[in-house]
């Protein structure tokens, strides 16, 4: 099961980030609300973040997909090293992932593209179905699950899905790719408090200054002049 040398178990601990610590700034609201008195003993070193929603196989797919969509280079670490796989795991486990605020009564009819999403599946179930269909398709066409493919084959597989050339069994590959890309980019660019965009790496990449935004005295002064600021996120103010 580890022919590519990456034990699948590691994906359970946040693919490709064994040893990556949770930045102190990512402390959630629960931690932020704890009393400010000094602890008697030093706090334990943070644990790697485990996946809590995705199965091991799903997590392996998502990690491989986000690393292909956002490869490591001089602009940023890989998608999973930026926390995007963890972001997707958390989002699919959130109220949104469970279909909150979504009209889910039948009858269910395919409809026209103009009528939008018409499946009974919640986002969580939609991704589970899509991942299984994608793996079945790469097994059939390339002999392996998606995460076991060589990097170039992963690019080719995602490209085929994007172009509508991947024939998934009974599932719309192009639509699935669209949802995967959209959720990946949301994770890459969202506030780091949701697990992705670690160290505000995506904001630094594009020059987005984050939360502090009092520009009444700057909007005219910086016409045609770059405004540079070290980005700050929600956790920086918590």
């Amino acid at each position: 099961m580890s022919e590519d040398g990456v034990p699948r178990r590691n994906f359970l601990l946040g693919a490709g980030l064994a040893g990556t610590v949770v930045a102190a700034g990512l402390a959630g609201p629960a931690e932020a609300q704890q009393p400010a008195t000094a602890p008697a003993t030093p706090p334990p070193a943070p644990e790697p973040e485990p996946f809590v929603t995705l199965t091991a196989q799903e997590a392996a797919f998502i990690a491989a997909a986000v690393d292909t969509l956002i490869p490591a280079d001089e602009l940023s670490p890989s998608g999973s090293d930026c926390g995007v796989a963890i972001f997707i795991d958390r989002q699919l486990g959130s109220a949104w992932g469970g279909g909150a605020r979504m009209y889910r009564s039948g009858p269910f009819v395919k409809g026209k593209p103009e009528q939008g999403y018409q499946l009974p599946l919640t986002p969580r179930d939609y991704f589970a179905t899509g991942i299984a269909a994608a793996n079945a398709w790469t097994r059939k066409t390339l002999g392996k699950d998606f995460d076991r493919l060589a990097a170039g084959d992963r690019v080719g597989a995602l490209k085929a899905m994007e172009d509508g050339k991947a024939a998934f069994e009974n599932f719309d590959a192009r639509a699935f790719f669209g949802q995967l890309l959209s959720l990946t980019m949301a994770g890459f660019f969202a506030d780091p408090i949701y697990g992705g965009n670690r160290d505000k790496v995506a904001w630094k990449m594009i020059g987005f200054p984050g939360l502090p935004a009092t520009y009444a005295d700057k909007i005219e002064a910086y016409r045609d002049k770059r405004y540079v600021a070290e980005p700050q996120s929600i956790a920086d103010f918590s």
Partner: peptide, 16 residues
């Protein structure tokens, strides 16, 4: 490109 290394370069170049 909408994703991949080319996407990152293009986004860094054009966002501002």
């Amino acid at each position: 490109p909408r994703w991949g290394a080319g996407f990152k370069q293009a986004t860094a170049k054009w966002y501002r």
